[in-house]
């Protein structure tokens, strides 16, 4: 038995990724739960509109961080501010009384606002009046499922080629690297599109999640996000020696996205450093876009930032993955043509 234990430790010591998973993951979980996993909301972005806006803004409890006071704006303008995610709460202050419009797409913030409604103010939750958890989770889960399917299946599919030695065979066939790349990724892209449609329809049908936004914006977000996750999958495959390693890496990339994307815990409640990690994750921006499209009917102009970030991520991640994958298929030419003239893959 002692020999077995010693052997196991020796193997474990040399398996750096498993060690990282065993040591790094608990630390990550601790940091995440300590600094990010907070349901308590201490600051709510607020805009105050209406003729009495200035006076009311001055009397709001401290939790309402008033970012904008617009006495000339109306309730319709306030609704638009919430729709565009420029504020989480809007107070409409009129001589006839005050109304507090609350964005219901962030449940914890909405609940916190409802608990601290100022006196003589009528609260009204918009976009998710019953604060139904499924309404906000389903759009986010679409992203999570695509992320899981996209990264795991793509990375495993590409690594399998390398494990079986068929990648080497492809590299000596009369195929351009782009043919192999597109031929390899296109099926996963189509499966991803299929998943996107099926999960969305199932979400709407099973959980009665409203879809009030533009189908085109939904498609645009879905396609760009798919490029990001497929790029991640290929990138993982290029640094993994086996399917097991690829799955391990994919899961290591998945966990922070679940925790830090705002899908479960509000970004506003996280410590600044942890929140910035969240901003670097594609799921964060996809969740923001999907909740806007599904529940608020947010227009493209207001979603330009999350969409733009996803486009940049798609270009960077997909581009990096393609370059790495291409390197596997066609090795670089030697720097000095007179020293080595095997012009690999030259036209």
């Amino acid at each position: 038995m002692k020999a077995m234990i010693v052997k196991e430790f020796r193997q474990l010591r040399r398996d750096r990724r498993t060690v990282a998973l065993l040591v790094g993951l608990p630390i990550l979980l601790l940091v995440v739960f300590g600094y990010a996993a907070k349901f308590d909301v201490t600051s709510i972005d607020t805009t105050v509109v209406g003729p009495n806006a200035r006076a009311v803004a001055a009397t709001l409890p401290r939790v309402y961080k008033v970012a904008n006071v617009a006495p000339r704006d109306t309730a319709a303008d306030a609704t638009e501010v919430l729709r565009n995610s420029d504020a989480q709460v809007a107070v409409v202050a009129t001589p006839n009384g005050n109304r507090m419009l609350i964005d219901g797409t962030d449940i914890f913030i909405a609940q916190s606002a409802l608990r601290q409604v100022p006196a003589q103010t009528i609260p009204e939750v918009l976009f998710n009046p019953t604060l139904n958890t499924a309404y906000v989770m389903v759009p986010a889960l679409i992203g999570l499922i695509l992320l899981f399917v996209g990264t795991v299946i793509t990375s495993v599919g590409v690594v399998r080629e390398r494990e079986q030695g068929t990648l080497e065979q492809l590299a000596v066939m009369p195929l351009r690297p782009i043919d192999v790349t597109i031929g390899k990724i296109a099926p996963y892209f189509l499966v991803g599109v299929f998943d996107l449609v099926v999960i969305t329809l199932a979400g709407i049908w099973l959980f009665n999640v409203p879809f009030v936004g533009s189908i085109w914006i939904f498609c645009a977000f879905g396609l760009v996000f798919l490029f990001v996750v497929l790029g991640l999958g290929v990138a993982i495959s290029t640094v993994s020696r086996s399917q097991g390693e690829a799955i391990q890496l994919a899961i290591m990339m998945l966990l922070p996205q679940v925790m830090l994307s705002g899908m479960i815990f509000p970004l506003a409640s996280m410590a600044t450093g942890v929140r910035w990690i969240g901003y670097l994750l594609p799921l964060t921006w996809f969740v923001e876009g999907m909740r806007g499209v599904f529940l608020k009917g947010t227009g493209f102009a207001a979603l330009a930032l999350p969409f733009g970030v996803l486009v940049v991520m798609a270009i960077v991640v997909f581009g990096f993955a393609m370059l790495r994958f291409r390197r596997d298929l066609a090795p670089k030419h030697s720097a000095s043509p007179d020293r080595a003239t095997a012009a690999v893959g030259a036209e």
């Binding site: 080497e168 590299a171 000596v172 009369p174 351009r176 066609a330 090795p331 670089k332 030419h333 030697s334 020293r339 080595a340 003239t341 095997a342 012009a343 690999v344 893959g345 030259a346 036209e347």
Partner: peptide
């Protein structure tokens, strides 16, 4: 063409190796 040589020359069919 799966590995580039560090030095030396390789000719296939009288030419530098190409995809064709």
């Amino acid at each position: 063409g799966l590995l580039a040589p560090s030095a030396g020359q390789i000719r296939l069919f009288g030419e530098l190796p190409t995809r064709q």
